[in-house]
Design a protein around this nucleic acid. Structure first.
Lengths: 339, 339
DNA sequence: AATGTTTGTGTAAGCGCTTACATTGATTCT
DNA sequence: AGAATCAATGTAAGCGCTTACACAAACATT
């Protein structure tokens, strides 16, 4: 794909009658060049239609103004708006986004990290805290600047921009308990290698244990994050002898799948069983009944992650943000338990 | 962000006792290097933890193995799975994806095109056919390799990977007509600068005109692609004197918004008015009633676009694919008109 | 008037890689 | 056995840019 004979700095230099250094300066640090010279240079650039060659620039300056983001899946609406916000903030700073996805596979994640670094990413956005030692080693050994999001850990907070999944799940569960529910089930995302799913589970479990008074988490069923698996898990749970009055779900997609299956099975939601999702993606307010869920500050999270990563890359001071707030959204899929 | 003293080709060369050229060859064209030498090289690479420097590579070879995709919005589920598929195919070929979004703004699109090219994208994926002359000029003058997707134009088919929005809308409308509907309205996406929205409008209009027999498109209301605007448009239409028996929608998000508003207004869907969406995003099957819609081959489209772009970049033969098929999905939001 | 400072510019040395070309030694052919 | 061919490797010339350093001119300071 030879970029055919694009004009180079030297061409511009010749035309403007100045040295290549002046042009480079005019481009990267205009204040260092006299107005008059700058004008000549700008005109020459205009006439020739010059654009800096990326490779040359990257090689000489050893930075690409590109950062990477590696997310489990783009199809999951949960990440879409966050990544969009992330990208928008970067874009304003003249930084571009390399995007890759892992399909929730840790090995794939390492592969993508390597690929993005090899493709020149100056820094990385990663989702979630849990990853194999090999991946941690790579990040540490190569000193890859990175920000971790969609979760929050108090220790080493200059790396995390996110919310506390455990706490959010705890709070949601408390609200459900307050409504009178005692018999819980959980349709969880696959927890292996996914700290968000695990933390949500723990949050729910803890809230129930703390509450006492006979409240119990009767069943936990794992499902991949897709509608149909949510449905299957729902059916599995409802066919057990110990029927819950409420089913908490690892995210809204699982909850929506459960809801659809409930309709097929003729099980009324929320009259016979309540359903609670997580993430508050668009679908949650559209389903019927709409899904009670936990709203996650996706956009703010994406923006904050971008700001933090940019700060790290520019070597500036990095403020450690507090965990972002989540909010329980009570909607029609959740009601008091049947007497 | 100085990548501190990462090992270079020369370091590897010294350690393996071969020339830098051999290593470069071992990396890029292994067959040209004897097995024995390759082994030595691989070991040295392993030991040193060497990764090729991106800038050097890009500069010397004048390609980055990176392509860009510029989509209207990531938040719109319509693009998410397509882009994901696109990225997966690229990834298998060792090519990375730079992603940017425009918010449906043509000027923003040009800005992003320039930004991605300036950041070394070897080629580009663009959505839709309509763009300002300045953008076309830029693409032509700079000979930017690109593939256009989410639409299809028979002329110069080596550029398009997509489906025929007009035809898809025509077919859907025909199905609705066959059910007995005669009084149509349309909640369209913003058509200015968006050929997909316009083509869908034209398809609907044409199908109605071709059918004759008193069928008419009574109202057309534009709305941005968000739930609430779909709802507003729905309310606007239902408050007109000439009430339609069916409302076609520019996409599923608009249809879902309309559906929610219908529920609020106490208007039964489909008993009093039918609703038809477009795209078949996840939400369409979850709403109640589920949305009749047009399924779009997002994943196949993303994959095919990636293959086509890769073919173009490698200078290989580019086969001009046929337009991809769409499928009308009849669901509960569409029924025969009330007597 | 001599000195120091500042400002604007040029010179030239890389940055780490790919690749055309040259070289070597082994293999095949006559 | 000598010529012709081929495979494997090395040599070295860039690719287009940034930037340390050197320099000159203009200005301020004593």
């Amino acid at each position: 794909m030879a970029r055919n004979s694009a004009p180079t700095l030297e061409d511009v230099a010749r035309m403007a009658g100045v040295s290549t250094a002046s042009i480079s300066r005019a481009l990267n640090d205009p204040d260092k060049v006299a107005k008059q010279t700058r004008d000549k240079i700008e005109k020459a650039i205009e006439v020739l239609g010059y654009t800096p060659n990326f490779g040359g620039r990257a090689l000489a300056s050893n930075r690409t103004n590109t950062v990477g983001a590696i997310i489990p899946s783009m199809a999951n609406a949960m990440f879409a708006s966050g990544v969009q916000a992330f990208q928008e903030v970067l874009s304003e700073a003249g930084v571009n986004l390399l995007l890759a996805s892992t399909g929730y596979d840790p090995e794939q994640e390492l592969r993508q990290i390597k690929a993005l670094i090899a493709h020149g990413a100056d820094g990385l956005l990663l989702i979630g805290d849990e990853r194999p030692q090999a991946t941690r080693d790579f990040l540490a050994k190569r000193r890859v600047e990175h920000v971790i999001s969609w979760c929050f850990k108090p220790h080493s907070a200059q790396t995390y921009v996110g919310f506390d999944n455990c706490r959010a799940a705890y709070d949601a569960t408390s609200r459900v308990l307050a409504l009178g529910h005692r018999r819980f089930a959980l349709i969880s995302g696959v927890r292996d290698g996914n700290d968000r799913a695990r933390d949500r589970h723990i949050g729910i479990e803890t809230a129930i244990a703390d509450f006492g008074q006979g409240a119990a988490l009767l069943h936990v069923k794992e499902a991949k994050y897709r509608l149909e698996f949510g449905g299957e898990a729902f059916a599995w749970i409802m066919e057990r002898p110990d029927t819950p009055t409420v089913i908490m779900c690892g995210n809204d997609v699982l909850a929506a799948g459960a809801l659809m299956r409930a309709r097929q099975m003729g099980i009324d939601v929320p009259d016979r069983v309540s359903l609670v999702g997580f993430d508050d993606i668009g679908l949650a307010s559209v389903s019927n009944p709409p899904l009670a869920t936990v709203r996650v500050p996706q956009i703010e999270m994406g923006r904050a992650a971008a700001r933090m990563l940019l700060a790290k890359l520019s070597g500036g001071p990095v403020e450690a943000p507090a965990p972002l707030p989540t909010e329980f959204i009570h909607r029609g899929s959740l009601a008091a338990p049947p007497d």
